[in-house]
Design a protein around this nucleic acid. Structure first.
Length: 384
RNA sequence: GGGUCGGUGGCAGAGUGGUCAAAUGCACCUGACUGUAAAUCAGGCGCCGCGAGGCUACGGCGGUUCGAAUCCGUUCCGGCCCA
């Protein structure tokens, strides 16, 4: 169930009801691919304010295995997270693992057919086949609250013809996901509407207007609970994102949540919110934090309205690379007005020191700070 | 005192006549990172110069050689062994 609380300009504020809790949108979800937000415990994620995290079907399927997690009582119980979980389908791994294997070995690490996608693990040569039906089954076993359809996420650049074939495959797979979802939902005994997980479809079509429109029509033709825009930030020019949103969003039903997958930088998120997107996920705050890049509010925008933030482009914040030598003796917090655990207790010099000696506590502090920055951003974007 | 082995860039450690400003690792500096095979990856790291290039360097000094981090002599320093 998704209810819109307010709409002004392109901005939407809403509430998304899942069986594990109600979520205010627009929202950002930290990424817990393998069942943990790297270096951070669930209670810390919740303490920042987050209520939705993202887990990954592919990775949890291989390790420790979805059956194992089911036996543990589901992913919520397994990882001690009692709020909603969205699981990605493994579709992104078609892209990321394929690219990675191609760069490293000159061959694609994935084999795609109508029926399924086969992943070859280049480390041990083992082969794993994931079909749309299997992806949904795994996500049921994980106990996901928001289930994503298995899609094909083609890399950029991608020819028009290849993008068309890819999107049409994604549509056929979406229907198969939907069908399997219905079967599994019925099979689970007497589930009321509120006890069922939600199922989201994914729109593809690369950077082509006609294909994005085609994909949007096809995917919204299926009665999904929400719609995701995928295949973005896979190497295409930045301006394309704006165009894709411009093509797709007007074709989306207004009463269902919209999820922009994998995005992004703070200014990209702000712009996408103003265009009508409700949900985001991205590795940037955690990964870049671990690597020493930290986000800092520009003082002028700290108490700004969401309109001002969007209009400022990317000047509402700046980043520092805390590994730079100039922070060696900087005994002030990353951001003096930030309320996160890192900023209220530790200096840049200390965090830099921890990161430079590879002490995991440093990565934890950096991740906590960046996740707080992203949370604060979303909170501003949710404020009237 | 005698013998012996060794002294190479911030550190460790290759190299043992030319292709050596010197492998590799660590450290250090700067970037990158967008549904996470990412505590990862890329570049830089003697001095001067945008550059071509020049200069200084493999403990010191002196030789041999067209040419030496590499060979010889000597000296200083260190490890081990014997007195």
């Amino acid at each position: 169930m998704f209810t819109i609380k307010s709409v002004s300009g392109g901005f939407r504020k809403g509430k998304l009801q899942t069986r594990s809790g109600v979520l205010d949108t627009p929202l950002f979800m930290p990424i817990a691919t393998k069942g943990a937000v790297k270096h951070i415990g669930p209670e810390e994620i919740q303490a920042i304010g987050y209520e939705l995290i993202l887990g990954n079907t592919y990775h949890l399927w291989l390790r420790p295995g979805d059956e194992s997690i089911k036996e543990a009582g589901g992913l919520h119980a397994f990882m001690n997270w009692n709020k909603p979980i969205l699981t990605d389908s493994g579709g992104f791994q078609v892209f990321s693992l394929g690219e990675r294997a191609r760069k490293k070995f000159g061959i694609s690490g994935v084999k795609l057919t109508e029926k399924n996608v086969e992943f070859t693990d280049p480390l041990n040569g083992s082969c794993h086949a994931l079909s749309p039906e299997r992806s949904i089954e795994i996500q049921f076993n994980l106990g996901s609250d928001i289930i994503m359809c298995l899609d094909e996420c083609p890399p950029y650049p991608c020819s028009h013809n290849a993008a068309r074939m890819s999107l049409e495959l994604t549509t056929r797979w979406a229907q198969r996901c939907y069908d399997r979802f219905q079967i599994l939902t019925k099979r689970s005994t007497n589930k009321t509407q509120s006890q069922k997980p939600l199922l989201f479809g994914i729109i593809q079509g690369s950077i082509y207007e006609d294909l994005r429109r085609q994909s949007t029509k096809e995917i919204t033709g299926i009665n999904f609970d929400g719609f995701a825009i995928g295949g973005v930030a896979v190497g295409e020019p930045r301006e394309k994102l704006h165009e894709i949103l411009k093509w797709v969003i007007p074709l989306l039903p207004k009463d269902k949540p919209r999820y922009l997958m994998g995005l992004g930088k703070p200014e990209e998120i702000a712009a996408a919110v103003s265009a009508g997107i409700d949900m985001f996920d991205c590795v940037i705050p955690t990964r870049e934090g671990r690597h020493g890049r930290l986000f800092v509010w520009n003082e002028k925008f700290r108490d700004s309205s969401c309109e001002n933030i969007v209009q400022s482009g990317k000047s509402f914040y700046s980043t520092i690379n805390i590994m730079n030598e100039k922070f060696r003796d900087d005994f002030f917090p990353i951001d003096r007005k930030c309320t996160c655990y890192a900023c209220t207790h530790y200096s840049k010099a200390y965090i830099r020191h921890l990161l430079s000696i590879n002490e995991p506590f440093g990565q934890r502090l950096a991740s906590l700070h960046n996740l707080t920055f992203y949370y604060d951003l979303m909170k501003k974007l949710r404020t009237e």
